[in-house]
Design a protein around this nucleic acid. Structure first.
Lengths: 213, 213
DNA sequence: GTCTATATAAGGATAGAC
DNA sequence: GTCTATCCTTATATAGAC
């Protein structure tokens, strides 16, 4: 460090960045203000100059993550008037890349939503999740109306997208198994195939359970 | 309570059961021995009579969860010589019902694997996950050999099964959206459709990305 | 087997010097 | 803006009585 003092917003940013890294690695509860200070190379006193409490740091991170679905919606609007299939492809690509690139910021707070359960954090987290499910449900419903998709329960597909994105962000072992490009390409293929019209004839169909019936 | 003292193994069981409930609800780190004692209606001194440490309680729970994949494999062996499609259907049904019924026991430690990261817990957790992925990968590969399935990357399908089961167990909001029966039936349909041979012709196929290519 | 009381450590937060 | 020093609370864990 060259100067004894620094720009406030720089330091604030640094605190948040390092905090997120530690939160993701060890969990929010297991990351103490002392740990955080040590990782940055300052003392706790300094931390409390920039943030009034640990909660305020957490809140800062949560608020940032909560904006991600808004950006997804904006992305979809900017696509303009494309077919539902193309919109779905593009949005899947956008979202999975977003989760991959920003996994430090976007994932930990979903994992820990219940652990840091206070209304202050829970409300934006629940809203974000709900917005996400609604967004993809609507998108798939458009395709159903156009006849491009055929699916009984669009919300379940939306849930599946949510689930696979979350797990991709959370689990390092998955990211070691596939590249992000493979992952996106094949998952997109799977999702599209799931909801494409036309029954796929399996060699046997031994049960009364029909597909999507 | 009728008697002042109780059977040791009963109490041990009770401690573990209540501990798991609290772990799932609030997280391991946020569950103190005081909380646990209070929830059971004893004092911490009593807890330490049955377990030498909090870690020993956690370990007990983790070990129990680690057995679940072994039972899945046993279930599959007992199915005998059925077609891969039927085996997949049955195993999916078995696993999702297991996760649903035992979600308190089977899910929390996967969520918190990184948070309680010590080699002592991590090793069985990683092994369990790996066994699970390998199990479904093998099962799908059988079907590919028989021509019942057609898929480039069976491990990715196995991952998807893992992901949707995990999220089902972890997220109450999903369980409010669907019944477990709906969930199993439709997810099974999705998975089978994903890996069934034959291209589904979408109305448009605007990209160079082929399905499973 | 369970209790009370307490040792010991760790974490959040603050006061005040520089 | 950062430091040192410290308060206060909570947590794990133990000792010893009943």
């Amino acid at each position: 460090m060259v100067t004894a003092t620094r720009n406030t917003s720089d330091r604030k940013q640094e605190i948040v960045d390092v905090a997120v890294k530690l939160f993701l690695k060890r969990g929010v509860a297991q990351t103490s203000m002392r740990d955080l200070a040590k990782a940055i190379g300052v003392t706790t006193g300094s931390l409390y100059h920039h943030f009034r409490s640990k909660d305020e740091i957490i809140d800062f991170v949560v608020q940032r993550g909560a904006k991600s679905v808004d950006r997804l919606m904006e992305f979809r609007r900017n696509l303009g008037n494309v077919s539902p299939t193309e919109a779905l492809r593009e949005c899947l690509n956008y979202w999975l890349r977003h989760i991959h690139a920003a996994r430090n910021y976007s994932v930990f707070w979903v994992r820990e939503a219940h652990l840091i359960a206070r209304s202050m954090y829970l409300q934006p987290i629940q809203k974000t999740t709900q917005d996400f499910i609604n967004f993809f449900t609507d998108l798939i419903n458009e395709g159903v109306k156009d006849g491009e998709f055929e699916v009984t329960n669009p919300a379940l597909v939306a849930f599946n997208i949510w689930a696979l994105a979350q797990e991709w962000g959370l689990r390092k072992w998955v990211r070691n198994m596939f590249t992000i490009d493979e992952f996106i390409e094949q998952q997109t293929g799977f999702i599209i195939k799931q909801i494409s019209p036309g029954r796929v004839q399996a060699n046997r169909m031994p049960y009364e359970l029909g597909v999507n019936e």
